[in-house]
Amino acid sequence: MTEPTRDVPGVIAPPPLIFLGFLLAGLALEFLVVRTQGLDMPNTLRWTVVALFLLTGIGSIVAALGRFRAAGTPAPPWQPATAFVAQGIYRFSRNPMYLGMLLVYLGLAVAANAPVVLWLLLPLVLTIHYGVIVREERYMAEKFGVPYINYLHSVPRWL
């Protein structure tokens, strides 16, 4: 007897928690263990970069959530998808929510003046890629077939 398949992508953890976990780990390492000299940039430039990252990241997340809401499909990857979204911000990136979370992560790293958080960027992106995105894409291709596969080939994963 085979187990029934679940109608979810099977991501390793909720993506916001993955980003938060890496951020908190980086901050703990920065301020409790490594204690670097911080980022070497003037305060005006630093806060401009923070503002740009945060505003762009939050804007990307809000735009993506709005498209999901308009399509009537849930955004959390642990819930079954009822549609795939290819309009709005999704014409430019297949993962604008994760891109937005990444920009917020970068903005918070710069705001905290914590280079160790930036050192964790590659492991974070690899975790999101293999633990979330690859699983979601496989799930969506199985669920929505050729239209989704065509979308995969026409829109970049990040930008």
Rank of each mutant, 00 (worst) to 15 (best):
M1F: 07
P9L: 03
G10M: 06
G10A: 12
V11A: 06
V11T: 02
A13S: 15
P15F: 07
P15T: 11
I18F: 11
F19D: 06
L20C: 03
L20I: 07
G21C: 00
F22V: 02
A25S: 01
G26A: 00
L27H: 08
L27R: 01
A28W: 05
L29P: 00
V33S: 12
R35Y: 14
R35E: 13
T36D: 12
G38M: 00
L39T: 06
D40N: 04
N43Q: 14
N43V: 12
N43T: 03
R46P: 07
R46G: 03
R46A: 08
W47V: 14
W47T: 14
V50I: 09
A51P: 04
F53M: 08
L55F: 01
L55M: 13
T56W: 13
G57L: 11
G57V: 03
G59M: 07
G59I: 00
I61A: 14
I61L: 15
V62D: 07
A70Q: 12
A71T: 10
G72E: 00
P74N: 07
P76E: 07
P77Y: 12
W78M: 15
P80D: 08
A83P: 10
A83R: 09
F84G: 11
F84R: 00
A86C: 10
A86N: 15
A86S: 15
G88Q: 00
I89V: 10
I89F: 01
Y90G: 04
R91C: 14
R91V: 01
F92W: 09
F92D: 15
S93V: 13
R94I: 06
R94H: 08
N95V: 01
N95P: 11
M97F: 09
M97A: 14
M97I: 06
L102T: 04
L103H: 10
L103K: 01
L103C: 01
V104Q: 09
V104S: 09
Y105H: 08
Y105F: 12
G107W: 08
L108E: 09
V110Q: 10
A111M: 06
A111L: 09
A112P: 02
N113R: 04
A114Q: 02
V116M: 12
V116Q: 03
V117F: 13
V117M: 13
L118K: 02
W119Y: 11
L120F: 08
L122K: 09
P123I: 05
P123L: 01
L124C: 05
V125S: 10
T127W: 12
H129G: 14
H129P: 09
V132P: 02
V132W: 06
V132R: 02
I133M: 15
R138N: 05
M140A: 06
E142Y: 15
K143E: 01
F144S: 11
F144T: 01
Y148M: 13
Y148F: 14
I149R: 10
L152N: 14
L152Y: 09
S154V: 06
V155Q: 04
P156I: 05
W158D: 07
W158E: 02
L159V: 03
L159S: 04
L159A: 04
